[in-house]
C-alpha cells in the first residue's frame, strides 16, 4: 500500500513546527510543541495501516476493511499524550507560581561555569555574547542572568 501524500506532508509540517516550539525557552511553548509532535506521531502511526471501511465484521467485506491495529495504538498514544500534557501544564503552572515565569532554567553546572567565566576563573570558555550581556541584565533580575539565553522572549 502506498501512503497518502497529504498525510505525509501534514506529518512533516506538524513535526517541523513541533520541533521549533520544543526548542523555545518558555515551558508553555514547549508544551505546544509536544502536543504538535504527539499529533504528528499519531498521524504517522495511522498512515502505516491499510485504509478502508470500518473494521467491523458484517458491515464491511474483509478485504475492504481498514487496519484496526494502528487505530488501537493511536488511541493508547492519545491517552498517554493527554496525561503528559496535563503534567506539563501542572509543571508550568508550578514554575510560574514559584518564579513568576515558566522558562526552562539552566542546569546547575552551566550556571556554575557561567559564574566562573564571569569572574574570569573558569577554563577560559567565556562566551563573549554572554559576558557582554550579563552586567546589563543583572540590574533587573539575578535569576534571569543565570538563564542568560539568547533568543528568550521578553
Amino acid at each position: 500500500m502506498s501512503p497518502n501524500l497529504v498525510y505525509v506532508v501534514v506529518v512533516g509540517v506538524l513535526f517541523a513546527t513541533g520541533v521549533t516550539l520544543l526548542l523555545e525557552r518558555s515551558l508553555t511553548r514547549v508544551l505546544m510543541g509536544v502536543i504538535l509532535l504527539g499529533n504528528g506521531a499519531n498521524l504517522l502511526l495511522l498512515t502505516g495501516g491499510r485504509a478502508g471501511g470500518p473494521p467491523i465484521v458484517g458491515t464491511t467485506a474483509e478485504e475492504e476493511m481498514s487496519d484496526p491495529l494502528p487505530q488501537a495504538m493511536v488511541l493508547t498514544a492519545i491517552v498517554i499524550t493527554l496525561g503528559m500534557t496535563a503534567f506539563l501544564l501542572a509543571l508550568a503552572y508550578r514554575s510560574w507560581h514559584l518564579n513568576g515565569h515558566d522558562e526552562v532554567q539552566d542546569d546547575v553546572e552551566d550556571q556554575r561555569i557561567m559564574e566562573l567565566a564571569e569572574r574570569d576563573e573558569g577554563p577560559g570558555t567565556a562566551d563573549p555574547e554572554t559576558t557582554d550581556r550579563v552586567p546589563t541584565a543583572r540590574a533587573d533580575d539575578d535569576r534571569r542572568v543565570a538563564a542568560g539565553a539568547p533568543g528568550r522572549t521578553r
Binding site: 520544543l22 509536544v34 502511526l45 498512515t47 503528559m84 509543571l91 526552562v104
Partner: peptide
C-alpha cells in the same frame, strides 16, 4: 530539574513512537 527531565523523556518517547509507526508500516 523535573522540567528538563520531563521534556527530554517526552522527546525520546516520541522518537520511539515514530520508530514504532515506521516499523509497523
Amino acid at each position: 530539574a523535573g522540567t528538563t527531565y520531563v521534556v527530554v523523556s517526552l522527546l525520546s518517547s516520541l522518537i520511539f513512537l515514530v520508530a514504532i509507526g515506521l516499523i509497523y508500516a
